[in-house]
Write a protein that binds this DNA or RNA. Sequence first.
RNA 1: GGACAGGUGGCCGAGCGGUUUAAGGCACACGCUUGGAAAGCGUGCGUGGUGUAACAGCCACCGCGGGUUCGAAUCCCGCCCUGUCCGCCA
Length: 428
Amino acid sequence: MHDIRFIRESPDAFDAGLKKRGLAPLSAELLEIDRLRRAAISESEGLQAKRKALSQRIGIAKRKGEPAEAAMAEVASLETALKQGEAEAARLDEQLTHRLEVLPNLPLDDVPEGADENGNVEIRRHGNQRNFSFPPRDHVALGEPTGEMDFAAAVKISGSRFVFLKGHLARLERALAQFMLDLHTSEGGYTEVSPPLLVRDNAAYGVGQLPKFAEDMFHTDNGYWLVPTAEVPLTNLVNDTVLDEAALPLRYTAFTPCFRSEAGAAGKDTRGLIRLHQFPKVELVSITTPEQSAVEHERMTGRAEEVLRRLGLPFRTIVLCGGDMGPASRKTYDIEVWLPGQNAYREISSCSNCGDYQARRMGARYRPKEGKGTRYLHTLNGSALAVGRTLVAILENYQNEDGSVTVPDALRSYMGGLELIPAPAAKK
RNA sequence: GGACAGGUGGCCGAGCGGUUUAAGGCACACGCUUGGAAAGCGUGCGUGGUGUAACAGCCACCGCGGGUUCGAAUCCCGCCCUGUCCGCCA
């Protein structure tokens, strides 16, 4: 949600931000609605003030036992204009809100120009792509033959874009989640949270999922939304609150399943674990002051990268261009892990600084140490990491020629000391 | 699912047709006091909108939406949410 006063004061900056998003300028149109709205408010308030004064006089007169008919008649004569004025002011105010609430956030100045993912800019790389002495398999070819990655069973029970993990792979998923949570809570300073996965409209609205992205979420027949990411409940932890600056920053992490309808993704990534209706993810959310959010964003991205470093997975970090960012974000880093089975880097984390966009929608404010009043908080969220895709990356990067998979050092204690996930032939 | 009780500022809490211009307290800020602190005393302090160069002023807001009335936090209707008890249940 945008602040109309910002648009009033800096229409050019607003339009420049939209342009970076690939959108046409809107400030002139919005300011015209705002102008009409303010005129309507002034007129309506003038009438309201008149009614109020007269009503007070009537009250005083009645108490004294004096006649009040003249004043009562005068108020009555105002009624039509009053009703119309109030309705007009409300209508224009609502119109402005509806226009503003579907607009995306403005990109920060250092976000690159660009219409789509081709405009994204790689900013760093870590780790070397392994040199295989044999043609590397993809994760499906590694997982399915052992029966521990079972798409066929999932199809029978839930349809496409679901999976059963069993045995070593189920445990590997759990090990990864636990490893990530432990890292974030110990070194990262994040508080572990186990949040609700069904949320109400207002929570989905607060982070910007509603009203625009309803079709991307699953909805229950009694009115709940299944969370598409733990960002939704975690960020909403501060909705409708006024925090003391001393309490900041707040840092939350959660391991949850995420549910996405993947509307519009038909035919995309149909093979394997890459794009499912339900996938596990460890999420990070930070709540900070406007002054701190840029630093916090770098820190958060660094924590996500640290997971990959510990796991020994090669990755690159890119900054998304204006045309490729999610609507709530002012700046987004994607981290892409190297997947030898696909011979490509694939997104495994996305870390966004949402500025005050979500805070404004949620009513999330804080009281600054210095100065008066309240200010909107800044909210940030990032995956660290998408656990399903991390599992894919482990399988593909740590595979051996016989189809077995070496367990990375960092995970062995979480796997009961297991060093090797056996190949299909080794199983009976 | 059933019954009842409630939703008032950052928090607690009074008010239940007209000086509410939302009491009072807590918290917070500043000052006095003090060797320093606490306590005490004094002053200030809700949110949003509109308006202004900035003040001032004005309007709205007591869960949300309607209605009654000259006038609604207060009365009426609908909805949402919360709590308690009962039922069911991991």
